[in-house]
Design a protein around this nucleic acid. Sequence first.
DNA 1: CACTATTGTGAGCAATAATTCAACTCTCTG
DNA 2: CAGAGAGTTGAATTATTGCTCACAATAGTG
Lengths: 205, 205
Amino acid sequence: MPSADRRLQPRRKPRQVRAELTRERILASAAHIFAEHGYAAGTTNHIAEHARVSIGSLYQYFPNKDAILAALLVRHIDRGTWMQADELDMSPGSLETAVRAMVRDAIDNHSDDPRLLRIMVEEAKFSQELLDTIDRHGKIRVGQVRDLLSRHPDVTVADVGVAAELIQFTIEMNTHKLMAAPRTIAVETFETELVTMVTRYLRGP
Amino acid sequence: MPSADRRLQPRRKPRQVRAELTRERILASAAHIFAEHGYAAGTTNHIAEHARVSIGSLYQYFPNKDAILAALLVRHIDRGTWMQADELDMSPGSLETAVRAMVRDAIDNHSDDPRLLRIMVEEAKFSQELLDTIDRHGKIRVGQVRDLLSRHPDVTVADVGVAAELIQFTIEMNTHKLMAAPRTIAVETFETELVTMVTRYLRGP
DNA sequence: CACTATTGTGAGCAATAATTCAACTCTCTG
DNA sequence: CAGAGAGTTGAATTATTGCTCACAATAGTG
């Protein structure tokens, strides 16, 4: 593990499609492995192997291991997380419908992303600027939920901001657990109960 | 980092007080160092040094590095289950009181060392034995909650088992997040909202 | 086709970490 | 207090990992 002044630029930029594909495979594998086994367990050799690319190629496009994580982060931010925005903006139905949409969204969308993002935030040593960006994004998501709540007439909760944070996280983690652990209960049952819990909370007594 | 067939048992169990003390010092140091610098940075040599114990001694009582983290985790889980049992047994008041007791319990349990707990959850390599232990404890806790729910007259939920699982996990994870992440909201606010959510869910409309 | 630029390969180096073991010291017991 | 077993030590060994580099393979081009 050499720790000296590390190169900041890759030694090569993809010019042919083939190369772009290689780079892409590496990133995809890294995302998968980091999310699945954590940052430390995701060794560069491991990533290269999973991407079916030689370790040398990996180091053509990424100057070091941290740069891979950084690239994933940049990509995530570039893409934006506007899927949820779409869902929420056009859900003017009942409160239960809106909540159900959120839960469905979480189930569908429960990709590597949430866990990967957490790893990025907690493991990587990044510039303050990047960290702020991550933080801002999290706040945006919660903000979207908060807007929905304050727009809806049925919501009788004391502090909409706190409620938004609470239900956002609750839905995300419960979904994650459902998908990760060996299935104890049916997805439909789970969905119904989760929706019920959140809805009853928001609607109040 | 050898990964071959690793010894599962320590080569020695403490028989004299002196040895028990050594083991204890190692665990304490490990907890401290893991919490402070992360799992990867907490090398066995580092731990031994901090505990003022030779590296050889460390390997007398722990077959490998993972076993240290596992021991810390098991200890934490043991304590948690035991505490919850106490709390729930003697909480015959209102439903809200009982739920509040659960939440308080979770908060207490996490206040020790949130960062260490995070590391345990995210970095520990779970042997089958450890997984079984965790699973067993999880079932015990859910069982305790289920009993409480079915005993309580105010609970109007369809399936008590599912509800127990849902609220147990929800409380645990939300608390975990609260303590691990930089504080966004006050603990009291959080407690109130979480209690409200769970209570409203259980009580129904 | 030949020639060049780009891309891909993987054995192996250097640094660091995990783990072992033979020799030692300390405690206990008869 | 002697012998046996328990506990301790830390230099030496083994394993892992981030990363390099000399070379091979493939694509682009006139």
